[in-house]
């Protein structure tokens, strides 16, 4: 959590964070944040791409901070737009052995399995 708070503060030195209902306009994205998001997203950016990503992400977040103008305290987050519920399958086996098709596009196959670099447990 400490790590997070630090990241959060570094994102905007002028106001700490943008939760104060104001457009902040100061989402400065640090190298650490880009590094961290790169680990989450499994993307390796070149130094130029990193600089670009810092700028683009900062600008986008400044723009997204516009949402803070809205008072949404009483509003339920809407994940699904229509009230459709309870869509089920019955517990009946419908699929047979389709191994060959499933492996058809695999970059590397060995012993009917997907071959990957060694994983460490």
């Amino acid at each position: 959590m400490e790590d997070l708070d630090r990241r959060r503060q570094e994102n905007c030195k002028s106001c700490g964070f943008s939760e104060r209902g104001q457009v902040c306009g100061g989402n400065r994205i640090t190298d650490e944040t880009i590094e961290y998001v790169g680990i989450l997203a499994k993307l390796e950016l070149s130094p130029e791409e990193k600089e670009r990503a810092k700028k683009d992400m900062g600008e986008m977040l400044d723009y997204i901070d516009k949402l803070n103008e809205l008072d949404t305290k009483e509003v339920e987050p809407m994940s699904h737009v229509f009230p459709v519920n309870n869509v089920f399958r019955e517990d009946v086996v419908t699929n047979g052995d389709d191994c060959e098709n499933m492996l058809k596009n695999a970059p590397e196959v060995k012993e009917r399995s997907y071959r990957v670099p060694k994983t460490v447990d």
């Binding site: 809205l70 339920e76 987050p77």
Partner: peptide
């Protein structure tokens, strides 16, 4: 926040 805005 975005999901709440979506609701609005």
């Amino acid at each position: 926040k975005a999901l709440r805005t979506k609701a609005l």
